[in-house]
Amino acid sequence: MAEYFCGMGEWAVGQAGDILCARGLGSCLGLVLIDNKKRMAAMAHVMLPSSNGKVDMPAKYADTAVVYLLEQLKKNGSSMNISCKMAGGSKMFNVSESSLLDIGRRNAEALENSLKENGIQLLNKDIGGSFARTVIFDVMKRKFLVRTIGRGEVEI
């Protein structure tokens, strides 16, 4: 029984009784891969759309995070019958001329592409907007909560 906090670019694998979370997501995404048969899941706190070939932090990039989490699940004896949920990818500031402009949207698109390529079903998502999110996944209950300031807490 443990609570794992995935900081930016970090990841974790949890079993029954564990809680996985990624706090204070803006343009970043919280991705959880859920084992449909066993009580097991993996989370990544994804920061950027593309790794451009870098291998130092696989959970940091949308194009490497999915494959990396799948490998970690396999190592931990997952059934490899996997579905997923994700949240984040917002645009925190209303700017028109910054490189910040569409990083959240690009993150979400890249991650969805990568999920499709790996044949993983996206059960639900809560992305975009201009507000912060914290995501919390209870592995035992398979419950994915999205917490915000001023918009309450929703299960997706």
Partner: peptide
């Protein structure tokens, strides 16, 4: 640029900027 203002979680206000300026970790 003109200023943009927001009130929300500390991490979320910084994460896009950190992502774009990061080298390694």
């Amino acid at each position: 640029s003109p200023p943009a203002v927001a009130v929300d979680m500390n991490g979320a206000l910084l994460d896009g900027i950190i992502s774009l300026t990061a080298v390694g970790d």
